[in-house]
Design a protein around this nucleic acid. Structure first.
Lengths: 213, 213
DNA sequence: ACATATCTTCAACGAACGTTGAAAGATCTG
DNA sequence: CAGATCTTTCAACGTTCGTTGAAGATATGT
């Protein structure tokens, strides 16, 4: 309870985030959201102007924080390696670590947010427009850093590599519980430490394999 | 026009497949589907018993074909390598190639199907139950083959590796068009040959990197 | 050709949807 | 404290939703 009291806007964003993550945009009604938030139905339209603007506000809220943190870390690893380009491992670390840190140390809302992001990223309806609006500028800088770290790789290989990288990431964030079932409980989707130990090595090795293909 | 005439069931499955892929389960109404299929609204309940059974039938139809083809190829690469275990590259090839071949040589319906699969796989609502029902038995055989191809890897590494692998695959199948935007048209999401040339090397290298971590 | 089973049409049901406007309340400003 | 502005409540709007049952058409088997 750090904050004095949540505003109506925040209550709506929190409830919407959780429910959109669970059932998607069309599977969640404004009445379900406002009931969970404990506010009146009409307040969605007053504060956000409609259902879709609320959805976009949910994506934008933590997206901005994530972009900030990612760029901060990218600058740090570049500074540490200068004048040489940052290594592939360091760049993918700067891309993944903010997410993993938020999941491990910050409020539960990030879990819902990333789960929602996973679904949005894989959806033809939202994937291009919504992900692009929030993340393209940042992502392009990471792709550029990846190219510099892999000078022998063709640009197409890096673009495709980024596609694989973000696919591997988002499925891991989706919290489908599938991994738990497949491994008969040996692995747990929610085990952030286990994910952290493996995602970076997998992706870095994959990118190098692609570059030296 | 190979078939004499599509039955009502097939018309419904085809239309539902395309529309579910575009807007998801909740974003698609039965009226939209039946209008696209050119059949009466009530026929969904007559032939399938409701909206959800129709959705499951869509996933099941091509899923069964995909499982068959995957297992056929897995058996082939195992036979070719016997008595040694099949290589990691050969196993991931047996997993990916049926999809890539269907996309390149078979009817357009596979595009919609895989796009839908990408969304389902990343959704908390469907990811565990629906994917598991159709694919778990087959997937477990591939994971076992991967373990045999990487005897130095811990089982947890292979489970997580499979998770990354299928994440990279499904995002590539989602047809969000995001890759096209990010690369300013240099790469095209729909370019199956470009995907085929890169997905296998990326994933095999990633798995090896994970095993030797 | 007739009886039977299968398939299709049509009209309608109650429920839930996103959105709206007017009135009531709360908070801020001078 | 009074007036203006921001916020919340309430009731209702027109639409669309999934599902249903009875009637009609078509196909099947003898």
């Amino acid at each position: 309870m750090a904050r004095a009291r949540r505003t109506t806007k925040e209550k709506l964003l929190d409830a919407a985030e959780k429910l959109f993550a669970r059932k998607g945009y069309h599977g969640t009604s404004l009445r379900t959201i406002t009931r969970a938030a404990g506010v009146d139905l009409a307040l969605v339209n007053y504060h956000f102007g409609g259902k879709q603007p609320l959805f976009e506000a949910v994506l934008e809220r933590r997206g901005a924080l994530l972009n900030e943190e990612r760029l901060r870390r990218l600058a740090a690893v570049r500074r540490a390696a200068a004048p040489a380009p940052a290594s592939t491992e360091a760049v993918v670390g700067a891309f993944f670590d903010p997410i993993l840190d938020f999941l491990e140390h910050a409020d539960r809302g990030w879990h819902s947010y990333f789960s929602l992001l996973a679904e949005v990223n894989n959806s033809p309806e939202w994937g291009k427009r919504m992900m692009g609006k929030t993340f393209n500028a940042t992502v392009k800088q990471f792709i550029e850093a990846l190219m510099q770290s892999l000078p022998e790789a063709a640009p197409q290989d890096v673009y495709w590599g980024y596609n694989f990288l973000t696919g591997a990431l988002t499925l891991s964030l989706a919290e489908t519980g599938r991994l738990d079932v497949l491994s008969d409980g040996l692995c747990r989707s929610a085990d952030v430490a286990a994910l952290r130990a493996r995602l970076g090595p997998f992706v870095a090795a994959g990118l190098r394999g692609l570059a030296g293909r």
